[in-house]
Design a protein around this nucleic acid. Structure first.
Lengths: 163, 163
DNA sequence: TCATACTTGATCGAATTAGTCAGGTATGCT
DNA sequence: AGCATACCTGACTAATTCGATCAAGTATGA
Protein backbone atom coordinates (compact mmCIF):
# COMPACT_ATOMS: atom_id res chain seq x y z
CA UNK A 1 0.00 0.00 0.00
CA UNK A 2 1.39 3.36 -0.92
CA UNK A 3 0.88 6.92 -2.02
CA UNK A 4 1.31 7.15 -5.79
CA UNK A 5 3.49 9.65 -7.56
CA UNK A 6 0.33 11.18 -8.99
CA UNK A 7 -1.10 11.94 -5.57
CA UNK A 8 2.23 13.21 -4.30
CA UNK A 9 2.68 15.60 -7.25
CA UNK A 10 -0.91 16.75 -7.03
CA UNK A 11 -0.55 17.48 -3.35
CA UNK A 12 2.56 19.56 -3.87
CA UNK A 13 0.86 21.52 -6.63
CA UNK A 14 -2.14 22.18 -4.40
CA UNK A 15 0.08 23.27 -1.53
CA UNK A 16 1.75 25.75 -3.89
CA UNK A 17 -1.60 27.15 -4.89
CA UNK A 18 -2.69 27.29 -1.27
CA UNK A 19 0.27 29.49 -0.45
CA UNK A 20 -0.77 32.19 -2.94
CA UNK A 21 -2.08 35.56 -1.90
CA UNK A 22 -5.84 35.98 -2.50
CA UNK A 23 -6.49 36.89 -6.11
CA UNK A 24 -3.09 35.74 -7.31
CA UNK A 25 -2.64 32.89 -9.77
CA UNK A 26 0.14 30.57 -10.86
CA UNK A 27 0.53 29.40 -14.45
CA UNK A 28 0.97 25.75 -15.28
CA UNK A 29 4.43 26.61 -16.59
CA UNK A 30 5.40 28.21 -13.30
CA UNK A 31 4.07 25.26 -11.29
CA UNK A 32 6.03 22.92 -13.51
CA UNK A 33 9.25 24.83 -12.76
CA UNK A 34 8.56 25.19 -9.05
CA UNK A 35 7.79 21.54 -8.45
CA UNK A 36 10.14 20.09 -11.02
CA UNK A 37 7.36 18.18 -12.72
CA UNK A 38 7.06 18.13 -16.51
CA UNK A 39 4.75 20.69 -18.04
CA UNK A 40 2.58 18.04 -19.65
CA UNK A 41 2.11 16.17 -16.41
CA UNK A 42 1.25 19.37 -14.55
CA UNK A 43 -1.34 20.14 -17.20
CA UNK A 44 -2.92 16.75 -16.81
CA UNK A 45 -3.05 17.02 -13.04
CA UNK A 46 -4.49 20.55 -13.11
CA UNK A 47 -7.14 19.38 -15.51
CA UNK A 48 -8.28 16.64 -13.16
CA UNK A 49 -8.25 19.02 -10.23
CA UNK A 50 -10.35 21.50 -12.17
CA UNK A 51 -12.90 18.84 -13.08
CA UNK A 52 -13.03 17.89 -9.43
CA UNK A 53 -13.84 21.49 -8.59
CA UNK A 54 -10.68 22.03 -6.57
CA UNK A 55 -8.95 24.63 -8.71
CA UNK A 56 -10.17 27.52 -10.83
CA UNK A 57 -8.44 28.67 -14.00
CA UNK A 58 -8.13 32.06 -15.68
CA UNK A 59 -7.46 31.78 -19.37
CA UNK A 60 -5.47 33.94 -21.72
CA UNK A 61 -2.19 35.73 -21.35
CA UNK A 62 -1.26 36.32 -17.71
CA UNK A 63 -3.80 33.67 -16.81
CA UNK A 64 -3.21 30.87 -14.36
CA UNK A 65 -4.61 28.68 -11.63
CA UNK A 66 -5.83 29.26 -8.12
CA UNK A 67 -7.76 27.29 -5.53
CA UNK A 68 -11.48 27.09 -6.21
CA UNK A 69 -12.27 27.43 -2.50
CA UNK A 70 -10.59 28.09 0.80
CA UNK A 71 -7.65 25.83 1.58
CA UNK A 72 -9.38 24.92 4.83
CA UNK A 73 -12.28 23.58 2.75
CA UNK A 74 -10.15 21.26 0.61
CA UNK A 75 -9.20 17.90 2.04
CA UNK A 76 -6.54 15.50 0.83
CA UNK A 77 -9.29 12.93 0.47
CA UNK A 78 -11.04 15.16 -2.05
CA UNK A 79 -7.77 15.70 -3.82
CA UNK A 80 -7.13 11.97 -4.14
CA UNK A 81 -10.65 11.35 -5.42
CA UNK A 82 -10.17 14.14 -7.96
CA UNK A 83 -6.95 12.77 -9.43
CA UNK A 84 -7.35 9.02 -8.91
CA UNK A 85 -11.10 8.52 -8.75
CA UNK A 86 -11.15 6.88 -5.36
CA UNK A 87 -9.18 6.66 -2.15
CA UNK A 88 -9.50 2.98 -1.34
CA UNK A 89 -10.77 0.26 -3.60
CA UNK A 90 -12.88 -2.38 -1.95
CA UNK A 91 -11.63 -5.91 -2.24
CA UNK A 92 -15.02 -7.48 -2.90
CA UNK A 93 -15.73 -4.99 -5.66
CA UNK A 94 -12.46 -5.75 -7.35
CA UNK A 95 -12.43 -9.52 -7.17
CA UNK A 96 -16.06 -10.23 -7.94
CA UNK A 97 -17.51 -8.81 -11.13
CA UNK A 98 -20.05 -10.02 -13.65
CA UNK A 99 -20.00 -13.79 -13.80
CA UNK A 100 -17.75 -14.15 -10.79
CA UNK A 101 -19.26 -14.32 -7.38
CA UNK A 102 -17.69 -12.59 -4.44
CA UNK A 103 -15.49 -15.03 -2.61
CA UNK A 104 -16.56 -13.51 0.65
CA UNK A 105 -19.47 -15.73 1.52
CA UNK A 106 -22.07 -14.98 4.10
CA UNK A 107 -20.74 -15.03 7.62
CA UNK A 108 -17.49 -13.73 6.19
CA UNK A 109 -15.18 -12.39 8.84
CA UNK A 110 -12.69 -10.86 6.44
CA UNK A 111 -14.77 -8.33 4.57
CA UNK A 112 -15.56 -6.11 7.57
CA UNK A 113 -11.85 -5.65 8.14
CA UNK A 114 -11.19 -4.32 4.64
CA UNK A 115 -14.31 -2.17 4.84
CA UNK A 116 -13.27 -0.70 8.15
CA UNK A 117 -9.73 -0.12 6.92
CA UNK A 118 -11.06 1.74 3.90
CA UNK A 119 -13.34 3.84 6.03
CA UNK A 120 -10.46 4.68 8.32
CA UNK A 121 -8.10 5.72 5.54
CA UNK A 122 -10.78 7.79 3.87
CA UNK A 123 -11.86 9.29 7.16
CA UNK A 124 -8.32 10.32 7.91
CA UNK A 125 -7.62 11.90 4.54
CA UNK A 126 -10.98 13.65 4.52
CA UNK A 127 -10.05 15.40 7.74
CA UNK A 128 -6.64 16.62 6.67
CA UNK A 129 -7.16 19.92 4.88
CA UNK A 130 -4.79 21.83 2.66
CA UNK A 131 -4.31 24.71 5.07
CA UNK A 132 -2.81 22.25 7.55
CA UNK A 133 -0.02 21.52 5.09
CA UNK A 134 0.94 25.08 4.32
CA UNK A 135 1.84 26.23 7.80
CA UNK A 136 5.28 25.51 9.27
CA UNK A 137 4.01 25.61 12.83
CA UNK A 138 3.11 22.50 14.78
CA UNK A 139 -0.44 23.72 15.02
CA UNK A 140 -1.03 21.71 11.89
CA UNK A 141 -2.86 18.45 12.41
CA UNK A 142 -5.06 19.59 15.23
CA UNK A 143 -8.02 18.02 13.48
CA UNK A 144 -6.01 14.98 12.57
CA UNK A 145 -4.84 14.52 16.10
CA UNK A 146 -8.39 14.78 17.32
CA UNK A 147 -9.38 12.06 14.93
CA UNK A 148 -6.72 9.67 16.05
CA UNK A 149 -5.91 11.08 19.45
CA UNK A 150 -4.10 8.86 21.88
CA UNK A 151 -2.78 6.79 19.04
CA UNK A 152 0.63 7.97 20.02
CA UNK A 153 0.90 9.58 23.41
CA UNK A 154 4.31 11.14 23.11
CA UNK A 155 3.06 14.31 21.52
CA UNK A 156 2.60 16.39 18.49
CA UNK A 157 3.81 16.08 14.98
CA UNK A 158 7.29 17.23 14.21
CA UNK A 159 7.56 18.80 10.83
CA UNK A 160 10.29 17.52 8.64
CA UNK A 161 13.64 19.11 9.31
CA UNK A 162 15.93 16.92 7.26
CA UNK A 163 18.70 18.34 5.07
CA UNK B 1 -4.96 2.31 -2.54
CA UNK B 2 -6.13 -1.22 -2.25
CA UNK B 3 -5.75 -4.70 -0.83
CA UNK B 4 -3.92 -6.89 -3.32
CA UNK B 5 -5.05 -10.30 -4.45
CA UNK B 6 -2.01 -11.73 -2.71
CA UNK B 7 -3.05 -10.34 0.67
CA UNK B 8 -6.65 -11.36 0.13
CA UNK B 9 -5.73 -14.96 -0.75
CA UNK B 10 -3.23 -15.16 2.08
CA UNK B 11 -5.81 -13.96 4.55
CA UNK B 12 -8.35 -16.52 3.43
CA UNK B 13 -5.77 -19.29 3.74
CA UNK B 14 -4.86 -18.15 7.23
CA UNK B 15 -8.49 -17.99 8.27
CA UNK B 16 -8.90 -21.59 7.08
CA UNK B 17 -5.95 -22.67 9.15
CA UNK B 18 -7.24 -20.72 12.12
CA UNK B 19 -10.49 -22.68 12.00
CA UNK B 20 -8.72 -26.04 12.44
CA UNK B 21 -8.94 -28.09 15.60
CA UNK B 22 -5.73 -28.05 17.66
CA UNK B 23 -3.27 -30.55 16.26
CA UNK B 24 -5.00 -30.81 12.91
CA UNK B 25 -3.37 -29.78 9.66
CA UNK B 26 -4.44 -28.93 6.14
CA UNK B 27 -2.40 -29.87 3.09
CA UNK B 28 -1.55 -27.30 0.44
CA UNK B 29 -3.67 -29.32 -1.99
CA UNK B 30 -6.68 -29.15 0.31
CA UNK B 31 -6.26 -25.41 0.83
CA UNK B 32 -6.03 -24.95 -2.91
CA UNK B 33 -9.35 -26.74 -3.37
CA UNK B 34 -11.09 -25.02 -0.48
CA UNK B 35 -10.13 -21.51 -1.51
CA UNK B 36 -10.17 -22.03 -5.25
CA UNK B 37 -6.62 -20.80 -5.63
CA UNK B 38 -4.14 -22.64 -7.83
CA UNK B 39 -1.92 -25.14 -6.10
CA UNK B 40 1.25 -23.33 -7.19
CA UNK B 41 0.04 -20.04 -5.82
CA UNK B 42 -0.98 -21.62 -2.53
CA UNK B 43 2.48 -23.14 -2.25
CA UNK B 44 4.11 -19.79 -2.81
CA UNK B 45 1.93 -18.08 -0.23
CA UNK B 46 2.42 -20.80 2.37
CA UNK B 47 6.14 -20.59 1.83
CA UNK B 48 6.18 -16.88 2.59
CA UNK B 49 3.96 -17.38 5.62
CA UNK B 50 6.28 -20.06 6.89
CA UNK B 51 9.34 -17.83 6.48
CA UNK B 52 7.47 -15.16 8.37
CA UNK B 53 6.92 -17.61 11.19
CA UNK B 54 3.15 -17.60 10.88
CA UNK B 55 2.55 -21.19 9.85
CA UNK B 56 4.20 -24.45 10.75
CA UNK B 57 4.49 -27.38 8.37
CA UNK B 58 4.56 -31.12 8.84
CA UNK B 59 6.28 -32.94 6.04
CA UNK B 60 5.71 -36.32 4.52
CA UNK B 61 2.59 -38.25 3.70
CA UNK B 62 -0.43 -37.00 5.64
CA UNK B 63 1.54 -33.84 6.38
CA UNK B 64 0.19 -30.35 6.10
CA UNK B 65 0.10 -26.87 7.52
CA UNK B 66 -1.12 -25.33 10.72
CA UNK B 67 -0.76 -21.99 12.46
CA UNK B 68 2.60 -21.51 14.15
CA UNK B 69 0.96 -19.76 17.09
CA UNK B 70 -2.44 -18.93 18.52
CA UNK B 71 -4.77 -17.14 16.09
CA UNK B 72 -5.15 -14.41 18.69
CA UNK B 73 -1.40 -13.82 18.43
CA UNK B 74 -1.34 -13.38 14.65
CA UNK B 75 -2.27 -10.00 13.24
CA UNK B 76 -3.20 -9.07 9.69
CA UNK B 77 -0.31 -6.62 9.78
CA UNK B 78 2.11 -9.47 10.38
CA UNK B 79 0.46 -11.42 7.61
CA UNK B 80 0.86 -8.57 5.13
CA UNK B 81 4.50 -8.07 6.08
CA UNK B 82 5.09 -11.79 5.64
CA UNK B 83 3.67 -11.98 2.13
CA UNK B 84 4.40 -8.48 0.78
CA UNK B 85 7.34 -7.29 2.82
CA UNK B 86 5.70 -4.17 4.15
CA UNK B 87 2.31 -2.70 4.90
CA UNK B 88 2.76 0.86 3.73
CA UNK B 89 5.60 2.28 1.66
CA UNK B 90 6.73 5.74 2.61
CA UNK B 91 6.57 8.32 -0.12
CA UNK B 92 9.91 9.93 0.68
CA UNK B 93 11.63 6.58 0.66
CA UNK B 94 10.22 5.77 -2.74
CA UNK B 95 10.75 9.04 -4.54
CA UNK B 96 14.15 9.97 -3.21
CA UNK B 97 16.91 7.47 -3.63
CA UNK B 98 20.61 7.72 -4.33
CA UNK B 99 21.34 10.79 -6.38
CA UNK B 100 17.86 12.19 -5.99
CA UNK B 101 17.05 14.32 -3.05
CA UNK B 102 13.76 14.06 -1.25
CA UNK B 103 11.45 16.63 -2.68
CA UNK B 104 10.03 17.23 0.75
CA UNK B 105 12.18 20.10 1.90
CA UNK B 106 12.66 21.25 5.42
CA UNK B 107 9.54 22.53 7.05
CA UNK B 108 7.60 20.24 4.79
CA UNK B 109 3.97 20.03 5.72
CA UNK B 110 3.20 17.10 3.47
CA UNK B 111 5.50 14.40 4.76
CA UNK B 112 3.93 14.16 8.24
CA UNK B 113 0.59 13.40 6.65
CA UNK B 114 1.88 10.39 4.76
CA UNK B 115 3.83 9.25 7.80
CA UNK B 116 0.79 9.49 10.02
CA UNK B 117 -1.37 7.72 7.47
CA UNK B 118 1.13 4.87 7.29
CA UNK B 119 1.28 4.60 11.06
CA UNK B 120 -2.47 4.50 11.24
CA UNK B 121 -2.89 1.79 8.62
CA UNK B 122 -0.17 -0.31 10.17
CA UNK B 123 -1.51 0.29 13.65
CA UNK B 124 -4.94 -0.84 12.60
CA UNK B 125 -3.80 -4.00 10.83
CA UNK B 126 -1.42 -4.88 13.64
CA UNK B 127 -4.32 -4.93 16.05
CA UNK B 128 -6.73 -7.00 14.03
CA UNK B 129 -5.97 -10.60 14.85
CA UNK B 130 -6.87 -13.76 13.04
CA UNK B 131 -9.26 -15.02 15.70
CA UNK B 132 -11.42 -11.97 15.05
CA UNK B 133 -11.93 -13.13 11.46
CA UNK B 134 -12.93 -16.69 12.13
CA UNK B 135 -16.23 -15.84 13.75
CA UNK B 136 -19.50 -14.94 12.00
CA UNK B 137 -19.72 -11.45 10.59
CA UNK B 138 -21.62 -9.64 13.34
CA UNK B 139 -19.01 -10.51 15.92
CA UNK B 140 -16.08 -9.70 13.68
CA UNK B 141 -17.63 -6.41 12.85
CA UNK B 142 -18.16 -5.76 16.52
CA UNK B 143 -14.54 -6.56 17.13
CA UNK B 144 -13.29 -4.10 14.55
CA UNK B 145 -15.72 -1.50 15.82
CA UNK B 146 -14.36 -2.07 19.28
CA UNK B 147 -10.90 -1.47 17.93
CA UNK B 148 -11.88 1.86 16.44
CA UNK B 149 -13.58 2.87 19.63
CA UNK B 150 -10.57 1.99 21.74
CA UNK B 151 -8.30 3.53 19.16
CA UNK B 152 -10.09 6.82 19.41
CA UNK B 153 -10.73 6.85 23.13
CA UNK B 154 -7.88 5.10 24.84
CA UNK B 155 -5.26 4.31 22.26
CA UNK B 156 -5.11 0.72 23.32
CA UNK B 157 -6.90 -2.50 22.60
CA UNK B 158 -8.61 -5.04 24.77
CA UNK B 159 -7.55 -8.46 23.65
CA UNK B 160 -9.24 -10.57 26.27
CA UNK B 161 -12.87 -10.07 25.52
CA UNK B 162 -15.29 -12.63 26.98
CA UNK B 163 -17.35 -14.71 24.63
C1' DT C 1 -4.06 38.78 -34.53
C1' DC C 2 -0.82 36.60 -32.18
C1' DA C 3 1.45 34.95 -28.18
C1' DT C 4 0.23 32.87 -24.08
C1' DA C 5 -2.12 29.60 -21.62
C1' DC C 6 -5.50 26.19 -21.01
C1' DT C 7 -7.82 21.59 -22.87
C1' DT C 8 -8.32 16.96 -24.60
C1' DG C 9 -7.39 12.45 -25.50
C1' DA C 10 -4.34 8.99 -27.40
C1' DT C 11 -0.19 6.60 -26.75
C1' DC C 12 3.60 4.14 -24.65
C1' DG C 13 7.58 2.33 -21.93
C1' DA C 14 8.52 0.85 -17.22
C1' DA C 15 7.20 -1.17 -13.14
C1' DT C 16 4.33 -4.03 -10.52
C1' DT C 17 1.07 -7.64 -9.90
C1' DA C 18 -0.65 -12.08 -10.20
C1' DG C 19 0.19 -16.12 -11.06
C1' DT C 20 2.74 -20.30 -13.62
C1' DC C 21 6.25 -23.61 -14.31
C1' DA C 22 10.04 -26.66 -13.62
C1' DG C 23 12.68 -29.03 -10.84
C1' DG C 24 13.94 -30.00 -6.74
C1' DT C 25 14.07 -32.02 -1.24
C1' DA C 26 12.20 -34.14 2.94
C1' DT C 27 9.14 -37.48 5.26
C1' DG C 28 6.23 -41.34 6.52
C1' DC C 29 4.26 -45.59 5.27
C1' DT C 30 4.67 -50.21 3.66
C1' DA D 1 14.72 -49.58 1.21
C1' DG D 2 11.40 -47.81 -2.06
C1' DC D 3 8.16 -44.70 -3.29
C1' DA D 4 4.19 -41.85 -3.09
C1' DT D 5 2.94 -37.82 -0.88
C1' DA D 6 3.79 -33.35 0.25
C1' DC D 7 6.71 -29.50 1.00
C1' DC D 8 10.43 -26.17 -0.99
C1' DT D 9 12.83 -22.91 -4.23
C1' DG D 10 13.39 -19.68 -7.54
C1' DA D 11 13.04 -18.38 -12.26
C1' DC D 12 9.81 -16.92 -15.52
C1' DT D 13 5.89 -14.54 -17.84
C1' DA D 14 1.34 -12.49 -19.19
C1' DA D 15 -1.65 -8.90 -17.78
C1' DT D 16 -2.42 -4.75 -15.62
C1' DT D 17 -1.38 -0.40 -13.75
C1' DC D 18 1.60 3.49 -13.29
C1' DG D 19 3.86 7.46 -14.78
C1' DA D 20 4.24 10.07 -17.66
C1' DT D 21 4.75 11.98 -22.91
C1' DC D 22 2.99 13.65 -27.16
C1' DA D 23 0.12 15.77 -30.61
C1' DA D 24 -3.25 18.63 -31.73
C1' DG D 25 -6.14 21.46 -30.58
C1' DT D 26 -9.34 25.81 -28.21
C1' DA D 27 -9.95 30.09 -25.62
C1' DT D 28 -8.36 34.62 -23.98
C1' DG D 29 -6.19 39.10 -23.34
C1' DA D 30 -2.96 42.55 -24.87
Amino acid sequence: MRITSLVECSTRIMVRLASLQPGATLSAEKLSDLENVSRDYVDQILQRLRKGGLVASTRGAQGGYSLAKASSAISIGELVRAVEGQVFEEVCERYSSGEHECRHMSNCGIRPVWLRLGEMIEGFLDKVTLDQLTVPEPRAFAATMAFIKDFEKEGRIQHDKRR
